[in-house]
C-alpha cells in the first residue's frame, strides 16, 4: 500500500516536472519578469474570435497567433501598455478586458450613481410631504385621540 502511494506520488511529480518543461520550451523567456508579464497579458487580452475567452484559455488559431505575437513583443522589451496598445490598434478596444472610459462607456459609471442620487432625492421629498400635510383640524383630532388613550 505504502509502495503504491509512493509510486503515485512519484508519477505525479514526474508529470508536473514534464509539463513545466513543456511550457518553458514553447515560450522561452530571458527572465521571470518577462514570463509573468506574458502570463498577465494572456489573461487580460481577449481572443477576438471567441466571445468570452482570454488568450490563455482559447484554442482558436488566432489566439495562438496573438500569444506568439505577445511573446515576441515581450521579448523585444515592450512593457504592458505598449503590448496592449499594439493589440488595440489592430483589434480595437474589444481585445482588452478593461474597457476605456469614453463618451459611450462613461454611462456605465454615471447611470448607477445618478440613480442613487435620484432615488435619495425622491425619498427625501416624499418624507417632507407627510410631515406638512396636516391641517389644524386634523391636528386637533389627533390630540383628542391621544388624550382619550391616556
Amino acid at each position: 500500500m505504502k509502495a503504491m502511494s509512493r509510486l503515485v506520488c512519484l508519477l505525479l511529480g514526474l508529470q508536473l516536472a514534464f509539463t513545466s518543461v513543456a511550457t518553458e520550451e514553447k515560450y522561452p523567456f530571458e527572465n521571470a519578469q518577462q514570463r509573468s508579464l506574458f502570463m498577465e497579458l494572456s489573461k487580460e487580452l481577449r481572443c477576438p474570435k471567441c466571445q468570452n475567452q482570454n488568450l490563455a484559455d482559447s484554442d482558436a488559431m488566432i489566439a495562438a497567433d496573438l500569444k506568439r505575437k505577445v511573446h515576441e513583443l515581450v521579448l523585444a522589451g515592450n512593457d504592458k501598455d505598449q503590448v496592449i496598445s499594439y493589440m488595440k490598434q489592430r483589434y480595437g478596444d474589444f481585445v482588452y478586458y478593461q474597457p476605456p472610459v469614453n463618451s459611450m462607456t462613461i454611462w456605465l459609471w454615471l447611470l448607477p450613481a445618478l440613480f442613487i442620487v435620484l432615488a435619495l432625492a425622491a425619498l427625501v421629498m416624499s418624507r417632507k410631504k407627510v410631515s406638512v400635510s396636516l391641517d389644524a383640524q386634523q391636528q386637533q383630532k389627533i390630540n383628542e385621540l391621544l388624550e382619550r388613550d391616556k
Binding site: I62, D65, R90, G92
Partner: peptide, 12 residues
Amino acid sequence: KRDLSLDLGVTG
C-alpha cells in the same frame, strides 16, 4: 506566417 492578417485585425 499570418503577420499581415494580424496587422489587419483579421479574426478568421
